[in-house]
């Protein structure tokens, strides 16, 4: 109980003055790591944990941050994305937080990161064994929309009573002719626990299955942690005669020409003009650096990149990313 005062002086000499390495005190980190171990041992099960107040608001990634803060070390390299992009305000802000409190290296290159913290996307580039993907979770309970009561939800998980979830999919097909859930699409993990994949688009669901990297999920406000260990079965719910399908676009990425990525719609004017670009900003920039081109001319693409501050910009730790042309 008295060790924390020693911890408070940032021993690494690099973190924020007056705060421990990666903000949380070591006791809290140990508590969270124990919860993570439990979560890994019971894939898909929501482990309650004593979530702490973080200096960012609830709903802005406090759960993911606590998980990251508990597992990050001096040698780690961190990538933070929001909506697939490294340069959205919230991603920048969280990356700044760890650069400031933990003084770790940051990167935008998926393959270089040892930890990737994400909100709403799984990176397009494959992740490998040894990497960790940390998801920020606003609502960990996949049954919440059907059953607002926590006590009843926990019973349904404990008894594996998931008929009601299937009813909601049935209702979609009866009403719309298809399962009208496009994100937060529920999955069964390891044939046992129903799990919310967080609001990633269902496009990303198949990536979770048999994923080589460890997937950790942190919900700060709801104080739950859950996990998918590497190479675990993750199945999106469906019907035999209405199998799970992912979104498809008729268009390709206007910048890099990719045909198989999740695309953001970019409104060009107020007369319905639009184009589509990869939501994963790093993936798109890398492909362009490799010479891939979409329909947009080079000069227009450069103008776009300059406007969104996406590609041709040094990352904030001052290192120019290698793939930038």
């Amino acid at each position: 109980m008295t060790t924390a005062s020693a911890e408070k002086t940032a021993e690494n000499g690099a973190g924020e003055e007056g705060y421990n390495f990666a903000y949380l005190d070591e006791q809290t980190k140990r508590m969270i790591r124990r919860c993570i171990l439990k979560a890994v041992a019971v894939p898909g099960y929501q482990v309650p944990f004593g979530g702490r107040e973080m200096p960012l608001p609830y709903g802005w990634g406090t759960g993911g941050m606590q998980v990251t803060a508990s597992i990050i070390g001096h040698d780690d390299t961190l990538k933070v994305i929001d909506q697939g992009a490294d340069d959205t305000t919230n991603a920048v802000n969280i990356r700044r937080f760890f650069a400031r409190t933990a003084a770790v290296d940051t990167t935008e290159v998926t393959a270089e990161a040892s930890i990737v913290q994400t909100r709403h996307r799984v990176p397009e580039d494959p992740m490998t064994e040894g990497q960790i993907l940390v998801y920020q979770v606003p609502q960990p309970e996949p049954l919440r929309k059907l059953e607002p009561r926590e006590i009843e939800c926990r019973k349904m998980h404990a008894y594996k009573e998931y008929g009601l979830m299937q009813v909601s999919l049935y209702e979609d097909i009866a009403r719309f002719g298809e399962i009208a859930t496009s994100y937060s699409y529920p999955v069964m993990v390891n044939d046992r626990y129903l799990m919310s994949p967080t609001p990633i688009p269902k496009f990303d669901n198949p990536k979770m299955h048999d994923f080589p990297a460890l997937q950790l999920f942190g919900a700060g406000r709801e104080k739950r942690i859950y996990a998918i260990p590497p190479f675990t079965k993750v199945k999106s719910l469906d019907f035999d005669d209405h199998p799970f399908e992912v979104q498809q676009w008729e268009e390709n990425c206007a910048l890099c020409g990719a045909e198989d990525t999740f695309l953001d719609e970019v409104i060009l004017d107020d007369r319905g003009g639009k184009m589509y670009v990869c939501s994963d900003s790093h993936y798109c920039a890398r492909r362009r650096a490799e010479g891939h081109r979409g329909t947009l001319s080079d000069s227009a693409a450069a103008a776009y990149a300059a406007a969104v501050g996406a590609a041709d910009r040094p990352s904030e730790d001052g290192e120019s990313a290698e793939w930038v042309t």
Binding site: P57, T88, R221, E265
Partner: peptide, 25 residues
């Protein structure tokens, strides 16, 4: 109110990916 204020205001964060999914749907 710390939880409530955070979660209500997190609606200001980008939701383009989810919104794009809903658009498609």
């Amino acid at each position: 109110n710390v939880e409530a204020s955070g979660f209500v205001q997190h609606l200001k964060l980008p939701h383009y990916v989810d919104f794009q999914s809903e658009l498609q749907l």
